[in-house]
Design a binder for these strands. Structure first.
Length: 195
DNA sequence: CGGAAGATCCTCT
DNA sequence: GAGGATCTTCCGG
């Protein structure tokens, strides 16, 4: 399958941003693959995503809004950031209320020197090959939770179509069999290969 | 290279 | 008080 929705590369803003995200999280997760993400000048092509839903036991929104997951019930195109295992941050983009896409990996293109410094490695394929690594590389933390993607420090734009593959989501125990993980087929910049 | 285990800290039960 | 949408290191094969 190919991402056919990608035309042009101007940043998604305002009503365009809203229209892109106000859809089924699976469609959004698929269409985000190959998009270009910048955070404070660091970023690149999104290579791996996962979709989460309110009716999905693996989702933080499964039991309704709480203090922690509040941003997940914000407007389409909102950013939801949470701490995982007491050590790392994870980045999500909100779709319809309580639905979101976890950004799991990207191919570095901009601000690589800063990523190398923050990650402590110069191996390009290991800078953003996982949700926690990606946040460390892009200097993402809770300070920029609950903001829209068309405002600083964020910028997101569509890019050229890429070949898409899918599989089961990573690191969960509940609802673990659904194929709601998406990625660039054959990319070297993934958290794990697709089977 | 694959599996195991430890690090570490909230939030929600 | 348990349990994570993770990562790194260490160990064995």
């Amino acid at each position: 399958m190919t991402n056919t929705g990608a035309i042009g590369n101007a940043p998604l803003t305002g009503s365009d941003l809203r229209a892109f995200f106000e859809r089924d999280a699976i469609a959004v997760a698929r269409d985000l693959i190959g998009c270009h993400l910048l955070v404070n000048g660091s970023g690149g092509l999104i290579t791996e995503t996962e979709a989460y839903f309110p009716h999905d036991e693996a989702s933080h929104s499964f039991r309704g809004p709480t203090k922690r997951n509040g941003a997940m019930f914000g407007p389409p195109g909102n950013v939801y950031i949470y701490r995982i295992y007491g050590m790392y941050w994870c980045l999500n983009f909100v779709c319809t209320p309580g639905s979101a896409v976890l950004i799991r990996a990207l191919e570095p293109q901009s601000g690589i020197a800063g990523m190398i410094e923050r990650r402590g490695t110069d191996v390009l394929t290991q800078l953003c090959s996982g949700p926690g690594k990606l946040c460390q590389a892009l200097d993402i933390d809770i300070e920029i939770n609950n903001r829209l993607l068309d405002r600083p420090p964020f910028s997101i734009s569509r890019s050229a179509p890429v070949p898409i593959t899918s599989g089961t989501r990573i690191g969960i125990t509940k609802n673990a069999e659904v194929p709601w993980r998406f990625g660039i087929q054959g990319s070297r910049y993934l958290s794990k290969p697709f089977r």
